[in-house]
């Protein structure tokens, strides 16, 4: 009796150990797969040009150098690109959140006639149902006509417009999951609609807001197509376009590109880590009631 129990225990412990080691192997493989390009980029950014092209490549041991970082951010204008990227991404994210949250709240809470809630929501989503490049030429012409080509404003407007459908749809779901009683209680307690939204509703959907914000920021930060089409000068060039611009007819500046790209990762990484505790809750919010 006792010995069988002992055997069972050993077996259980073995299967737990074995199970968790399989977990680790799978996780490790996934991590390797995901991080290998990042590692490659990081090492390239610290290697001299000679070592970059050596065969076989020096995987781990090489003489690190900061020359590419110096080249990118001091000699060339990557500092400026970084600033543009930051301004454009942050502003468009904030604008998108404010406008989109208000729209989502209205769609989630106010009954519009003619089933407009559903129709408007689908309409809003439909603006993302075609490839972005379709709008590139019209947007270029419109921005030219209002003389916004090569300005940060052009990018802010376009990114806000493209993030809005996502904000509206994500936030609408979060609002719909919130019991109406709470807002109604706030109204009866004497608060205005906007007051109830700010003081009662928004604090309760913070995880959703955080998840949406990270999403918008990543999309705007990494956007390439419109930045390429709408800006040609250093005045409003973002990091992705700036980095791609180092591929020229005569040479490809791998070192500079890698250095700039490595720096480009940092802000999003920091932001996502800061909001991590909200992110998991936010992305799974509507999934589980309670």
């Amino acid at each position: 009796m006792l010995s069988t129990q002992k055997a069972q225990n050993t077996q259980r412990r073995f299967s737990v150990l074995f199970g968790s080691s399989v977990h680790y192997v799978v996780l490790l493989a996934a991590l390797l797969f995901a991080l290998a390009p990042v590692y490659w980029m990081l090492t390239i950014s610290f290697k001299t040009e000679g070592e970059q092209f050596a065969t076989p490549p020096p995987w781990f041991v090489f003489t690190p150098t900061l020359e590419h970082y110096y080249d990118a951010f001091v000699t060339r204008s990557f500092g400026e690109y970084l600033l543009t990227s930051a301004i454009v991404a942050v502003t468009s994210t904030l604008l998108g959140l404010v406008i989109g949250t208000l729209a989502a709240y209205a769609l989630a809470r106010f009954e519009l006639p003619f089933k407009l809630n559903r129709r408007l929501s689908l309409w809003i989503l439909s603006t993302r149902m075609f490839p972005a490049i379709v709008t590139a030429v019209p947007l270029f012409l419109m921005m030219r006509d209002v003389q916004l080509l090569n300005t940060r404003a052009a990018l802010i407007i376009v990114y806000t417009a493209f993030n809005l459908p996502f904000v509206v749809w994500m936030m609408r779901g979060f609002f719909a999951d919130l019991p109406r009683d709470l807002e109604e209680a706030a109204l009866v307690d004497g608060d205005s609609r906007l007051g109830a939204l700010v003081r009662v509703v928004l604090p309760l959907v913070t995880p959703g807001l955080a998840a949406t914000a990270v999403f918008c920021l990543i999309v705007s930060w990494n956007e390439f197509l419109f930045a390429l089409v709408l800006t040609q000068t250093d005045a409003a060039m973002t990091l992705p376009v700036g980095i791609a611009g180092r591929v020229t007819q005569y040479e490809i500046k791998w070192g500079v590109m890698s250095a700039a790209a490595s720096v480009a990762i940092v802000p999003i990484l920091v932001f996502a880590l800061a909001l991590q505790k909200y992110l998991v809750r936010g992305l799974s919010m509507g999934a589980v009631k309670g």
Partner: peptide, 20 residues
């Protein structure tokens, strides 16, 4: 007259306490 200006107090079945 909108709810907030009617100066009534209400107790909800769910209590509707602000969780945060």
């Amino acid at each position: 007259v909108p709810t907030q200006h009617r100066d009534l107090a209400m107790v909800f079945q769910s209590y509707a306490l602000y969780p945060h």
